[in-house]
Amino acid sequence: MSAELFFGLLPITVVDGLSIGLMYAMIALGYTMVYGVLEFINFAHSEIFMVGAVVGVELLVNLLVPTGLHPLFQLVIAIVVAAAVAGALAVAIERVAYRPLRVRNAPKLVPLISAIGMSLLLIDVMRLILNPANPNRPFPTAGSYDFFSQQLDLGFVAINFKTITVFVVVMLMLAGLVYLVNYTNLGRAIRAVAQDQSTSSLMGINVSNIIVLTFFIGGALGGVAGVLYALKYGVASPVMGFIPGLKAFTAAVLGGIGSIPGAVVGGLILGLLETLAGTYLPLMTQDQIGTEYKDIVAFGLLIAILIFKPAGLLGKAVAEKV
């Protein structure tokens, strides 16, 4: 390929990769926060993301578009509702599928299997609700929604408003999360529980409530990411959660699981690398290696990071608690 083509595609690929990476980061935060508190991979998180996306899109299509409000305003309402629903769902899942196991102090394998089951269950329940013959829910594009497809020309790169919306919303959410975790009492309680459950309960923290809160925040972030993902790719469907969930987990491990800045850094790196691979691999090999191989790049990265730096880029190596 020519250098001209290479550099011509670079800016838009980078912008695209960063916006995807930010969405991965949002999902990864759900994994990493729950892991930080409970040392447990919430496999159902990818389906919470999916539910958030479907709820947001359904709400937009059925209730908000007819109102004729500005699409950005509609999107904000959809995001808030999707976040609330996804957060509530995360709490409900914790209540039904994880807490009974935690209470009886089951071996680690048990909640993991239960989480996998929950993930499968949610996919098919959503298919049942949406009608499996046609489960895809396209994001509205007609009428005033043209707005999101418009390009903003920055000279070196033209970005559409979808991508800008993704950037702005994720930045706001991340700022809010950083404030919550680092500068409020609630955040201090979360960090304390992540560090040592029994000691923090001695300090007057209601550990159970903090766990519920962690699930809620993680779920809500996942729900927001879901709506943004549907905006970016134009569709929400019951099976949309699997691959982004896997990628987001990779991002969480890449950055160091349990670490909030790690999840963001991991998400950005993964999104960038994967988009670059997806764009340039087919170009460089004359389409002999298709875009689908970007998934393999992501998992190759996961395996590489586990070999060379199992604690992740920003994580600290900790000895297993005995």
């Binding site: 039904v96 196991l101 909640p111 089951g117 499968l120 098919d124 049942l128």
Partner: peptide, 17 residues
């Protein structure tokens, strides 16, 4: 027949609990 994952999910969760 199109909801096999639902069945596996229910099996996994209920057996674990």
């Amino acid at each position: 027949t199109q909801y096999q994952q639902l069945i596996y999910g229910v099996i996994l969760i209920s057996m674990m609990i």
